[in-house]
């Protein structure tokens, strides 16, 4: 149990997907103009990541691995299978949310399909493989990574909203400043590296 909490804290804060690995930057920079939309995308990412990582773990272990159903090493199919799972799951989540909670669907609407090509999701699936997590650990890794990403995008959106009132050299306005802010936040998050997750056991 301790390991699971440990991994959650580590993936949410210390090895933050957005601010230490800089994954999912495309939507991160494009959608972080206002806190409200950033929060919408953040929630959607937590949702999808929390579902796809365990799902991909099961597929990798029971279908592609050597002790899976087919009994042979099919890991070269990982990329195609993982991205199809993510695309299918995003589609499924979209349909379920539309059916049961139209208000949530309307607020997430445009962001859900975007998530398929968010590098943070596929990146987390591939990291889950290279770090050799077991099932429980991969659940907590998926959720933690999603929460960390959501936290980062909401924080950046808050700063960018305030940035609208500052005087910035014209060529740096908008995108340029967003890059510098993300870099500074990255340095700030490095301060968390000193935390020993074992202390939370």
């Amino acid at each position: 149990m301790g390991d699971v909490i440990n991994i959650f804290i580590k993936s949410a804060f210390i090895e933050n997907m957005a601010l230490s690995y800089f994954l999912g930057m495309c939507s991160f920079l494009a959608v972080s103009k206002s806190v409200k939309t950033a929060l919408g995308l953040g929630v959607a990412v937590v949702f999808v990541q929390g579902l796809t990582i365990p799902m991909n773990w099961l597929i990798d272990y029971y279908l592609l691995g050597e002790n899976g159903i087919f009994g042979m090493d099919l890991t070269f199919l990982r990329f195609i299978i993982f991205i199809s799972t993510i695309a299918a799951l995003v589609q499924l989540v979209e349909m379920v949310v539309e059916k049961f909670s139209p208000s949530l669907y309307n607020s997430l609407g445009i962001f859900l399909p975007l998530i398929t090509v968010n590098c943070a999701i596929l990146g987390a699936s591939l990291f889950m493989i290279t770090k050799e997590y077991n099932f429980a650990e991969s659940v907590s890794f998926g959720l933690g990574g999603g929460v960390g990403w959501a936290l980062a995008i909401v924080a950046i959106a808050g700063i960018r909203e305030k940035m609208a009132y500052s005087i910035i050299p014209a060529p740096l306005r908008g995108l340029g400043m967003a890059f510098i802010l993300t870099g500074l936040m990255g340095i700030a998050f490095m301060g968390l590296m000193g935390i020993d997750p074992a202390a939370f056991k």
Binding site: P171, G183, I187
Partner: peptide, 26 residues
């Protein structure tokens, strides 16, 4: 070597490019 530095470098490239090519300014 740390990754934030890459962010700053891309920002500097954007700055130089837009200062030269003003129609790209946001």
């Amino acid at each position: 070597i740390l990754s934030p530095a890459a962010m700053f470098l891309v920002a500097i490239i954007i700055w130089l490019q837009r200062a030269k090519n003003r129609k790209l300014i946001d």
